[in-house]
Amino acid sequence: MINEITLTDILFVSTALFFIGVYGFFTRRNMITMLMSIELILNSVNINFVAFNKYLFPQHLDGIFFTIFIITIAAAEAAVAIAIIINLYRSHRSIDVEDASELKY
C-alpha cells in the first residue's frame, strides 16, 4: 500500500499543511487558534522529515530523531505560550489579538 504513495504526494500534503498554517496564522484573530496554526506548521515539518528519511535516506535515522525533538519543543513552546495567554486574559479579559493593542507603532 505504502509503495503506491510516492514522495511527491507526501510532500504535497506537507507543503499544503505548511501554507494552511501560515494562512491561519495571519488571518485568525484568536490567540489559541494562532498557536494551533503554528502547530500545523511544525507538524508539516515533521511529515517532511519522516518522509525524507523513509524514502530517500533510510540508512540513518537523523530525520526521525529530529521529529521527536520538534514534538517535544513544540509542547514546551505551547506550555509557555498558553501560560502567557492566561496571564494576558487576566488583565485584558479577552484572548482576541485586536484587544491587545496597547503597543503600536
Binding site: 490567540m31 502567557i84 494576558l88 488583565s91 503597543l103
Partner: peptide, 11 residues
C-alpha cells in the same frame, strides 16, 4: 504591556 509584549514575542 508586559504580557502583551511577551505574547507578541513568543508567537
Amino acid at each position: 504591556k508586559s504580557s502583551e509584549a511577551a505574547f507578541k514575542f513568543i508567537i
